[in-house]
Amino acid sequence: MLHLNIKDETSRLRAVVLGSAINNGPTPSIEEAYDPKSLEHILAGTYPIEANMVKEMEVFYQVFKKYDVTVYRPEMIENYNQIFARDIGFVIDDIFFKSNILPDRERELDAIQYIIAQMNPEKVVRPPEEVHIEGGDVMLWNDYIFIGTYKGSDYKDYITARTNTEGVNFIKNFFPNKIVKEFDLVKSKIEARDNALHLDCCFQPVGVDKGIIYKRGFREESDYLFLVKLFGKENLFHITRDEMYHMNSNVFSIAPNVVVSERNFTRLNNWLRSNGFIVEEIPYAEIAKQEGLLRCSTLPLIRD
C-alpha cells in the first residue's frame, strides 16, 4: 500500500508520478488548443515534436533516479497527451484528490488507476461534479493551502480558467484546520504573456522560506502583497513578464535545497545558487511550448 504524505512543496521527495510524452499524438488543430501558448506554436509551426519531448522527460527521470526517488509513469494511451500529470490529481496530507478536469482529458486519470489502486480507498476522493480544481492551482505551505482561481463572471468562457470558487470552498470545508487562501489569477485566451494558467505559473515556494513570484499574475494587488508579507520581499525572486511566459516559476523541488530548473533560466538559477540551492539544470524548453513545465509534469505522492 502507498502511504501518501504531502504537506509542502519542498520536503525531501520519495515518490512521484512523472507524466509521459510517448505516443503523444499529432500536433493539435487550432480548435483543439487548450491554452494560448500552444496555440501560438501551432500557428507558428513550432509546436514541439514527440521525440524531443520524450528526450527532455527522460533527463528529468534520470534526475529523480539520481536522488533515489520512486517514479511512477502513466500507462500509455495511443495518440494522447499525458505529459501534465499535475492537472489530474493532487495529494494533501495523506489524501489523494482526483481532479474534475476538462472532459477530453478524463482518460489521463484511467492511465494512473494502477497507482490509485495501491492507495487506501478511504483516502481517495473525487469531488462533486460542480467542483473544478486542478493540481497546478494547489500549493501547500505549512498550515496554508494556497489555491489559484478565477473569479471573473465570464469563468465559463475561459478554457484557461481551471479552478472555480466551488473548488476553493470544497478544500476549505475538507480541511477546516488549515488556512485556505485563494488567489484570483489573470487569464487570457489569446496572449500567453498575460495568462496565469495555474497558480504555479506565477508563484511557487522554494526551500524553507523563499519563493518565485510574478506580480502581474494576480488580478488583485492585495493577493500579491499577502505573499510579500508572508515570505518577506527579500526572500522572493521577482520574475519579468517574459520570464513568466517561459515558465520560470514552474520549477520543481526534490528537497529543501535541491531544485530542478530549466537550463535557460539563467537569472533565476544564479539567484537560487547564490541562496545555497543545488540547481539541477535540464532542457525542458520544448515542453514549455505547451504552457507547462517541471512542476506541471509531476504529481508528488510522498515527501518526508
Rank of each mutant, 00 (worst) to 15 (best):
L4P: 12
L4N: 09
E9T: 11
T10L: 09
R12I: 13
V17G: 10
V17P: 12
L18F: 09
G19A: 08
G25W: 08
E32Q: 15
A33K: 00
L39Q: 10
E40S: 07
A44Q: 14
T46C: 12
T46M: 04
P48L: 11
P48H: 09
E50Q: 15
E50F: 11
A51L: 07
K55L: 05
K55Y: 01
E56R: 06
E56C: 08
Y61S: 09
Q62K: 14
V63E: 03
K65P: 00
K66M: 05
K66P: 03
V69Q: 05
R73N: 10
E75I: 03
E75N: 14
E75K: 15
E78H: 07
N79K: 12
N81S: 06
F84C: 01
G89E: 02
V91R: 12
V91D: 04
V91L: 11
I92V: 15
D93C: 04
I95A: 01
I95K: 12
L102Y: 12
L102E: 13
P103Q: 10
D104C: 01
E108G: 14
E108R: 12
I112C: 00
I116F: 00
M119S: 03
E122K: 05
V124C: 01
V125F: 01
P127V: 01
P127F: 02
P128W: 06
E129D: 13
H132E: 10
H132I: 00
H132A: 09
I133R: 05
M139R: 03
D143P: 01
I145P: 09
F146W: 11
I147A: 03
G148D: 05
Y150G: 00
G152A: 03
S153L: 08
K156C: 05
D157N: 14
T160W: 05
R162E: 01
R162K: 12
T163L: 09
N164T: 00
N164E: 05
G167H: 06
I171Y: 02
K172Q: 15
N177C: 07
N177Y: 13
K178T: 09
E182R: 08
F183I: 06
L185W: 05
K187T: 02
K189C: 08
I190N: 12
E191M: 10
A192M: 01
A192C: 03
A192Y: 14
R193G: 12
D194S: 13
D194Y: 12
L199P: 10
C201V: 11
C201S: 14
C202L: 10
P205Q: 06
V206S: 06
V206F: 04
G207T: 06
V208A: 05
V208R: 13
Y214K: 00
K215C: 06
F218G: 03
R219P: 00
E221A: 00
L225M: 13
F226E: 11
K229P: 01
K233N: 08
E243G: 10
M244T: 02
N250K: 02
N250R: 02
N250G: 08
V251T: 15
V251I: 15
V251Q: 12
S253Y: 05
T266D: 13
L268E: 01
N270H: 14
G276M: 10
F277E: 04
E280I: 07
I282F: 01
A288T: 11
E291L: 15
E291H: 15
L293D: 08
R295Q: 12
C296S: 08
T298A: 14
R303C: 08
